[in-house]
């Protein structure tokens, strides 16, 4: 289609459409910028460590469950673990209840709960987050082996 040869009333309609879409896009962009922080589903360990998350309010915290950090507390279903951003920030989470099937160390989780004054996150609900990488169990086992022998496979991204 040659726009140069377009009839002028059609070109005007096209311009009007472009204008409407741009205006709607602009309005949406401003609205999303204004809401930006509120759209985040969870606070990262880094944000909590920096004191950006409110204490004593129900919020969500998300991060990777640190290896060897899951310990049973008390008699029943009590459990405590550390979530991290794979860098320096760490937050201890305490939870009493049934963990999702996909909860394991090295896995992303999102916890709903409150941050107490000691900086411990007391969770009421724990959800498992997973990444977009899928593979058969055999492949995962092979990768694990390769990883142990020092090859970086570049998996488990998404929390930087």
């Amino acid at each position: 289609m040659k726009f140069g040869r377009m009839k002028s009333h059609r070109r005007n309609r096209l311009l009007l459409i472009v204008f409407i879409v741009c205006a709607a896009g602009g309005a949406t962009t401003f609205a999303l910028f204004a809401l930006n922080e509120n759209i985040n589903l969870f606070y990262s360990p880094d944000q909590i460590a920096q004191g950006e998350a409110p204490v004593g309010k129900t919020i969500r915290a998300g991060g990777m469950v640190q290896d060897d950090s899951v310990t049973r507390t008390g008699e029943g279903l009590g459990v405590s673990f550390v979530i991290s951003d794979m860098k320096s920030a760490q937050v201890t989470v305490e939870f009493e209840g049934i963990l999702p099937d996909m909860f394991r160390e090295g896995q992303g989780v999102i916890a709903l709960g409150q941050l107490n004054s000691e900086g411990v996150f007391v969770a009421e609900e724990v959800l498992a987050k997973h990444d977009e990488n899928y593979m058969p169990p055999e492949v995962a086992a092979a990768l694990e082996e390769a990883h142990e022998s020092g090859v970086d496979t570049g998996q488990k991204a998404g929390y930087e």
Binding site: L41, F42, G62
Partner: peptide, 26 residues
Amino acid sequence: ALVGVVNLPVIKYSVDWWYSLHQPAS
């Protein structure tokens, strides 16, 4: 229908712009 188009980039990039439970595109 045309005004609603602004929602499409929001859906597509939502998992990159904000922390979400949903994983990026498979």
